[in-house]
């Protein structure tokens, strides 16, 4: 537990609160010191922890791969280059398997999504009190380490993908083709209201499911870590049992972490593939 005075419910709430920067009730701009304050800031506030961690991780990913790319040649690859090439080849195979069109954006997009989400998800495997405790010492009221447990991240990425899907749908099929796909399927022009309803739901479901799937999985995983962490306050026996549980859940969670990154990437490729196809 981060602070001995906290009750279990306070501890949980504390762990689920982002470090939010926005307009305080007194009119000044600053950090929110409670969940209520953060809520009252409304839309024009920023989760510094989510943004900070995700940017740092993204930069780490790009720095590593840029380094590998800079020294990439046809000779015998070194360790880093080997690793980068392994990932790149894996992504390339996935894209070739699912994406039938021709678009130089898709493969790098898939690589970025996979690597970035994977890194953000991996933050979940850090012992959950380490970084919040460090932040506490630094005087920050909250710190949520895993960016993908913040719906802002998952919806941000899912909406970006959705934007690309709509953009390429219109670019490939024209406005008419895109609207026609929404209104003239599957029942023909006489079933127009039903078509709009069905296809509209179909379209909207893409980003929503994409975002909520990732968010839900990571949020639930994080929640279980928090609940297990509560056991550490219950004496030696329960604490040791909690340690075993945490270890097992972490091992299992590695699977979820990779799987969710892979699913997000694959679905993005598939959605973009559908956007490029005339009939589906």
């Amino acid at each position: 537990m981060s602070t001995e005075a906290l009750t279990s419910s306070e501890y949980i709430k504390h762990h689920l609160q982002n470090l939010t920067y926005g307009k305080l009730p007194d009119g000044n701009w600053g950090l929110a010191h409670s969940a209520e304050e953060a809520k009252e800031m409304g839309f024009w506030a920023i989760n510094l922890d989510t943004l900070g961690v995700s940017v740092v991780l993204g930069v780490v990913f790009l720095f590593l791969f840029r380094t590998a790319a800079k020294y990439a040649n046809a000779g015998i690859p070194g360790g880093l280059q080997n690793f980068a090439e392994w990932i790149v080849e894996f992504i390339d195979t996935s894209v070739r398997g699912s994406f039938s069109g021709r678009n130089p954006l898709v493969a790098p997009l898939a690589l970025t999504i996979f690597a970035w989400i994977l890194l953000m998800n991996l933050m979940d495997l850090l012992p959950i009190d380490w970084i919040p405790q460090l932040a506490h010492m630094a005087g920050l009221p909250f710190f949520k380490v895993v960016p993908t447990t913040d719906p802002n991240t998952t919806f941000g990425m899912a909406l970006s993908v959705f934007f690309l899907v709509v953009y390429y749908s219109i670019k490939m099929k024209g406005i008419g083709g895109f609207v026609g796909e929404l209104t003239l399927q599957p029942f023909g022009k006489f079933g127009l209201p039903a078509n709009i309803f069905l296809e509209g739901v179909n379209l909207i479901a893409k980003p929503v499911s994409l975002a909520l799937r990732l968010f839900g999985n990571m949020y639930a995983g994080e929640m279980i870590f928090i609940l297990i962490a509560l056991m550490f306050g219950g004496g030696i026996g329960v604490g040791l049992f909690g340690g075993v549980l945490q270890w097992s859940w972490a091992v299992f969670h590695i699977l979820i972490v990779i799987l969710q990154a892979f699913i997000f990437m694959t679905l993005t490729i598939v959605y973009l593939d559908m956007a490029h196809q005339e009939h589906h």
């Binding site: 024009w44 590998a68 790319a69 970025t112 719906p151």
Partner: peptide
């Protein structure tokens, strides 16, 4: 847990990362 401007920030970050990856990482490898 609130939806706020982080959403926009993440989207921008995402696009910048994708652009960088597309321009400087993917082609050389």
């Amino acid at each position: 847990m609130n939806i706020n401007a982080t959403l926009i920030g993440q989207s921008i970050t995402f696009f910048v990362f994708v652009w960088f990856c597309m321009k400087y990482v993917w082609p050389p490898i």
